[in-house]
Simulated assay, not measured.
Amino acid sequence: MLRIITLNLNGIRSAWRKGLLPWATAQNADFICVQELKAQHADLSEEMKAPDGFDAYYHCAAQKGYSGVGLWCRKKPDRVIDLLGSAEFDVEGRFLRADFGRLSVISLYQPSGSSSEQRQEAKFRFMAFIYPQLVELASSGRDVVVGGDWNIAHREIDLRNWRGNRNNSGFLPEERAWVSRLLDQGGWCDVFRDLHPTSTDDAYTWWSNRGQAWAKNVGWRLDYQLATPAIAARARSAEVFKEQRFSDHAPLTIDYDYDFDTASS
């Protein structure tokens, strides 16, 4: 069994203080994809750089206290790739890929456009830039899982107040159509939705810090594992963990009936 977890930390140092490491090491995960480190390498403690039981890799943003992604791997990868080839986005630390034989696991942090029109335009540029790369990956013949904060709720059942958010970043028609194109034409599968096609309230992975959103479960499903069809078909369970909070996002854990040791040998 292959277990992959994805979680936006909203600051690795903050999540660490809230008990991230003890929880993570108890999950028996093969990979943990983390996003929004809000830290640079110099800010990481030795424990963060070498969490118990994992080889840890980070792609930090050049800007302090901003963005950044990480991958914790149970086995040492054959190679790690942290560049997309974009001068604009590589400095923001939004992509990290680890290869193991025919398996690739990616931690991805798509920009949010909620803070300004300029950031929404940057988000659209990122989406346009990464789409052909994702299509190429899907057709490469490799087994690929992309765990990340996509900052898009794809369908109406993916957020509580969909009617009031139709003109807001994260639920714009262009964003939703982009996800649909990835799934319908780009060769990717939304693993959680394949397993839970009608799930609503228990599917949310992010809650605003405003208006008692967490207490009222007024959430959004922003954190996905997209996978290529062969490995997606092997997914057996998917769960959003809400018993303990490490950030404003919740971890998404998916188990695949997939022989990681054979694939990586």
Rank of each mutant, 00 (worst) to 15 (best):
204 Y>C: 01
163 R>M: 10
165 N>S: 12
172 L>V: 06
160 R>F: 13
228 T>I: 01
125 R>H: 07
118 Q>T: 15
220 W>D: 05
100 F>Y: 10
211 G>N: 15
148 G>S: 04
188 W>L: 04
141 G>F: 01
148 G>N: 04
215 A>M: 13
216 K>G: 01
120 Q>N: 14
144 V>E: 06
165 N>L: 13
125 R>A: 07
126 F>K: 03
127 M>S: 03
126 F>H: 01
218 V>R: 07
133 Q>N: 09
102 R>Y: 13
130 I>V: 15
131 Y>K: 14
225 Q>Y: 03
184 D>L: 14
219 G>P: 10
221 R>V: 11
177 A>L: 06
213 A>T: 12
101 G>P: 11
194 D>Y: 06
202 D>W: 06
166 R>N: 11
212 Q>I: 03
215 A>R: 13
191 V>R: 08
145 V>M: 10
221 R>W: 10
116 S>P: 09
119 R>S: 12
184 D>P: 06
145 V>S: 03
157 I>F: 06
128 A>R: 13
192 F>S: 03
147 G>P: 04
205 T>L: 01
201 D>E: 15
157 I>L: 13
194 D>A: 12
136 E>H: 13
182 L>A: 06
218 V>A: 08
110 Q>I: 08
182 L>F: 06
182 L>T: 05
143 D>G: 01
200 T>F: 05
214 W>T: 01
198 T>P: 03
201 D>Q: 15
221 R>S: 11
111 P>V: 05
149 D>H: 04
158 D>E: 09
107 S>Y: 02
112 S>A: 13
165 N>R: 10
117 E>C: 08
93 G>E: 00
208 S>V: 13
189 C>Q: 08
205 T>K: 00
195 L>K: 08
164 G>K: 06
155 R>D: 15
186 G>N: 09
159 L>A: 02
219 G>H: 08
174 E>S: 05
150 W>M: 09
115 S>L: 10
182 L>I: 07
171 F>E: 08
174 E>M: 05
143 D>W: 02
104 S>M: 09
143 D>N: 03
199 S>D: 15
128 A>G: 14
170 G>M: 02
202 D>A: 11
175 E>V: 02
121 E>L: 14
192 F>T: 01
150 W>A: 04
95 F>K: 03
137 L>G: 05
105 V>G: 04
167 N>H: 12
142 R>D: 02
207 W>S: 04
189 C>Y: 07
103 L>V: 01
158 D>F: 08
184 D>G: 11
169 S>C: 07
204 Y>A: 02
169 S>N: 03
184 D>V: 08
124 F>V: 06
215 A>C: 07
154 H>Y: 11
226 L>F: 07
99 D>A: 12
227 A>Q: 02
97 R>L: 12
100 F>S: 01
209 N>W: 13
101 G>E: 14
125 R>I: 04
